[in-house]
Design a protein around this nucleic acid. Structure first.
Lengths: 126, 126
DNA sequence: CTGTATCCGATCAGATACTG
DNA sequence: CAGTATCTGATCGGATACAG
């Protein structure tokens, strides 16, 4: 690259593949699925029960996407009545730390953020 | 809560407010905006130039959202011709580390993920 | 320069029905 | 049990036009 740098202190940078990856891995349901599978392998309906708000369709899509990215693994347990188990992969496990850091940040700063929101929302109704 | 615990090893957990917050702060354009503002304060059109792919509408929405959450600050520099500057807040700066951890993860594991994708996509066309 | 307002096509997500 | 298929309403994002 010629020169996109303006003296970036920490060298953060977001390429298109980065964004695409984060979109696929940090979307609405992925974190919950990841959370469940980090604790134990789950059947499809285990996950539905663990995440009541997700629809069948969205859960299927989420699982396929995570599987495609190598974050989880789909294991066929038996064929007649079909039984499937989803498991976290070793690659998936490496995702846990970054996500934890993010959640810790969210937890730590939630009060500040709520204050900011009230201030922002208030400066209009007033 | 009665008992949603299944012996969570690391205590990861995603509440609705957590998800909402991450959605607002990690969305498509927020990371790029954050990246720019971490380096220097920017005018509206500075940001448009720095992030060519964003439309005016989406940039405005992103800036409002980040401002509402206290991550950035909108400073009126002069009123006649209107001049505005956006700056990262101290709360916004605390977000940088978690995001960096995430980006480092993405960078480090991109090859594995690409391999996983090829394997997944290949097992159908074949 | 820094936006807001509107239209519009594409995508998303829920509900429902059906299959092996 | 573990999905797929389809319909549909809501939402998103881009393009364009306009305003203070």
């Amino acid at each position: 690259m010629p020169d996109t740098s303006h003296g970036s202190p920490a060298g953060l940078a977001i390429s298109a593949p980065h964004r695409e990856l984060l979109d696929q891995v940090l979307d609405k349901w992925s974190l919950q699925v990841l959370n469940e599978l980090c604790e134990r392998p789950c059947r499809f309906n285990d996950l539905r029960r663990a995440i009541p708000a997700v629809t069948q369709k969205s859960l299927t899509a989420t699982l396929r996407r995570l599987e495609r990215n190598g974050i989880i693994e789909r294991v066929l347990l038996s064929s007649r009545p079909v039984a499937v188990e989803y498991r976290i992969t070793s690659l998936g496990k490496t995702l846990r730390h970054p996500v934890d850091v993010l959640l810790e940040w969210a937890t730590a700063h939630m009060p500040d953020i709520e204050k900011a929101r009230l201030r922002f929302d208030g400066s209009f109704g007033d």
